[in-house]
Amino acid sequence: MTGYLLRRLPSAFGVLLLASFAIFLVLRAVPGDPAETLAGSDPSPAAVDAIRHDLGLDRPLLAQYASWLGHAVRGDFGRSYLIGGSVSDLLGQRIGNTVELTLGALVFSVTLGLVLGVLGATVKNRFGQTLLSAFNSVSLVVPGYVTGFVFVFLFAVTWQVLPAGGHESILADPQIGFQYVLMPALVLALPVSAILSRYVKDGIEQALSEDYARTAKSLGVPPRRLLWRHALPNALPPVLTALGMQIGVLLGGAVVIEAVFAWPGLGTLAEQAVTRRDYPVVQALLLFLVAVFVVVQLLTDIAYALLDPRVRLG
């Protein structure tokens, strides 16, 4: 396992470094000068230069990158051009909320995916199959913001059992917090659960058709035990990989779902920073997202290696 980690870790680190440089470069190459934007209407050239010097925009590109990265790894992403205040404070307030939403969605998508997948592999009657596949198709196809509006209309406006939007910390008050996170997390989870359920279903059906399953069956292993102890564990590794790839979908989807449910996360911050070209905030956001992808990919690979010795020894 150590050998596998020694091979896998440097490549993750390299990707991260490369991505950080790309993020830095791309946003420096854009048209429009933040110094001029900041200087207000009709500024004197001297005032623009002073602001540019203040922000460090007159230094060589590589020097700017090195100092940006040096500060970034210590959690200092500079100051927001437009909102004022430090970027890390700005992000710090929001990251927790987005992580809460994404983790909630992750829990729902895994639970739903497993339940729907196992049902899909075991329910044999035609009506049940049609119902399941219709549910999966709808979750997969209808965009989250549409589902979100329908949920708000049903659960918050019509039946008034859940709040229409907003956020209460689930750590401060689990019961109230859960009511707020339930709808957005479920909406975010639906398409991912549909994808996962397909992997679970196919994996179980595949495993049940293997020789070892037939042997177990002929040795008198009851069907229930065959499913839970033999087929399901063997179906899981591909599900894990699919889940790792879907984390990006969850994070991307969170940006929209946060807007539907007035959830104070990174989504609203991203929209503001992007439309106003607030580089330090955009850079920090993108770097955070890329870091999450890389770490998730790494964790997925490690979990895969733990589950499947062929991977770590190969």
């Binding site: 791309v26 946003l27 190459a29 854009v30 990006g248 979908v249 994070l251 991307g252 989807g253 940006v255 929209v256 991203a270 920073a273 992007v274 439309t275 070209r277 580089y279 955009v282 956001l285 993108l286 997202l289």
Partner: peptide, 12 residues
């Protein structure tokens, strides 16, 4: 993911 690409391109 599509929307992250959307944010990046819009920033540029």
């Amino acid at each position: 993911p599509g929307l992250i690409l959307g944010l990046t391109v819009t920033a540029i």
